[in-house]
Amino acid sequence: MCLAIPARIEALTTPGNAIVNLGGVRKEISLALVGDVAVDDYVIVHVGYALQRLDEAEALRTLAAFAELGELDELRAELAEQPQ
């Protein structure tokens, strides 16, 4: 449950919101549940909210793990498409 992907803040928008980059996908999220954050900070995003700020090293380690998981997903999708 509850996979939560680190995202880098690209821009602060309307008060309390931000645009983040989630693996190449830009998305607006709420900053209501975190304290002060700035552009280029990494935050954990969960169902549209930034949950907490993350230091860059941990964020990059986590993103590497998700990248590996993405590869597994793609492999699974390929296997599912192959004729039995």
Binding site: C2, L3, A4, I44, H46, E58, T62
Partner: peptide, 14 residues
């Protein structure tokens, strides 16, 4: 350690 990284939204439980 990897469980803690992947499941940060419910890190303590995981």
């Amino acid at each position: 350690a990897l469980v803690g990284l992947l499941f940060q939204a419910c890190r303590e439980a995981q």
